[in-house]
């Protein structure tokens, strides 16, 4: 096994990747889902869930990914891990294009990445005990030589996420939502990954539990130098946990910037309205706030509008917006980019 790891490491250095470069580089990523209809399942359209995304995730950072339901943020997260098969583009992980790996090599590379899910009820196999759930990753990658080693590692994982080691023999249904989410996190940690996609990890939890999980994720990140892609629809949570934030709208990243700048000076009108739509738990502030209320609904990824996809709801839209699609570096302030011809000042 040691030789395998060594080989994998060599593979990375052979591709010329150094830790100074982004850990994950997404280039021109497209994930389309065909819509089929009729007896012979003819393809009648494409849902462009992810439609041309460029994104860097830097070593050790938390990149927040926000957007409304159906914007493709979850599909993007899963495409990066190749849990759904992208239609086109590149996902370079430590310099190596994951989309070109064979299935065996891909399975081996999975050791370095993990995912945490939204629904702590659906993401654990109801027929496995906690020990089985956590041990599975160890089994797959042969990380525990003996039953004793496996048991110890399971205990260690439970300890890391703040659960009692007595829980190893229990089944998922015996736990509360927050505890289940901790089990899900422990499973993600089992393979000792460097990169974790957190797919709405707190939105299904009770309000009083959410902070526990956010803090746990932050502690673990510090302890194990993890890199997170943190997907959520709640911008206040994302702003809290992220170093940088990417905003998605109908399959596209429309703005990316450092978390603070995004809140202080949003450039894309969509980001601006998203920020203004989030209620702040402070009555005095909340009543004085100016709100941008968008008209209409999110455009359909099945048939996105021409040009800028946000123009149908945008309060700053001009004829030009319908003609050509603004690229992400239309506004380019170095670390802060936005895909808009008429950005907010």
């Amino acid at each position: 096994m040691a030789t395998k790891v060594a080989e994998a490491r060599e593979g990375h250095s052979a591709s010329g990747w150094t830790p100074a470069q982004p850990l994950v580089e997404v280039r021109g990523l497209r994930t389309w889902f065909p819509v089929r209809s009729g007896v012979i399942s003819r393809v009648v359209g494409q849902v462009r869930a992810v439609d041309g995304v460029d994104l860097d995730i830097r070593q050790g950072e938390t990149l927040g990914l926000v957007g409304e339901s159906g914007c493709g943020k979850s599909t993007l997260g899963r495409s990066i891990l190749r849990l759904v098969q992208p239609t086109a583009g590149e996902v370079r992980f430590k310099g190596q294009d994951l989309l070109r790996l064979g299935s065996r090599a891909m399975r081996r590379t999975r050791r370095e990445m993990a995912i945490i899910f939204q629904d702590p009820f659906a993401s654990l196999d109801p027929r496995q005990t906690v020990a089985d759930i956590l041990g599975e990753a160890l089994d797959i990658h042969h990380l525990a030589r003996t039953g004793r080693a496996r048991k110890e590692r399971v205990s260690e994982l439970l300890g890391l996420v703040g659960l009692s080691t007595d829980f190893a023999g229990r089944y998922p249904h015996e736990f509360s939502g927050g505890q289940r989410q901790r089990i899900g996190i422990a499973r993600a940690l089992a393979v000792d990954p460097s990169f974790i996609v957190c797919d709405e990890p707190i939105s299904a939890l009770d309000v009083s539990i959410q902070a526990q999980i956010i803090n746990l994720l932050e502690q673990l990140q510090e302890k194990f130098h993890l890199t997170y892609l943190f997907i959520a629809h709640d911008l206040s949570v994302v702003k809290h946990i992220s170093d940088r934030i990417a905003v998605m709208y109908v399959g596209k990243v429309v703005e990316v910037s450092a978390a603070k700048d995004l809140y202080r000076q949003p450039k894309h009108p969509y980001t601006g309205s998203l920020l203004s739509a989030i209620p702040i738990p402070d009555p005095r502030l909340e009543r004085r706030r100016e709100r941008i209320i968008l008209k209409g609904d999110v455009a359909s990824p099945l048939n996105p509008p021409s040009g800028c996809r946000f123009r149908t709801r945008c309060f700053k839209a001009q004829p030009r917006c319908a003609e050509t699609e603004p690229p992400l570096d239309t506004v380019n302030l170095g670390d802060h980019k936005a895909a808009c011809y008429y950005p907010l000042s």
Binding site: I214, N215, D282
Partner: peptide, 14 residues
Amino acid sequence: IPRLDADEHEPLKP
């Protein structure tokens, strides 16, 4: 709960 208008990153107090 995390607040959008929080200035500095402070750990939440769960």
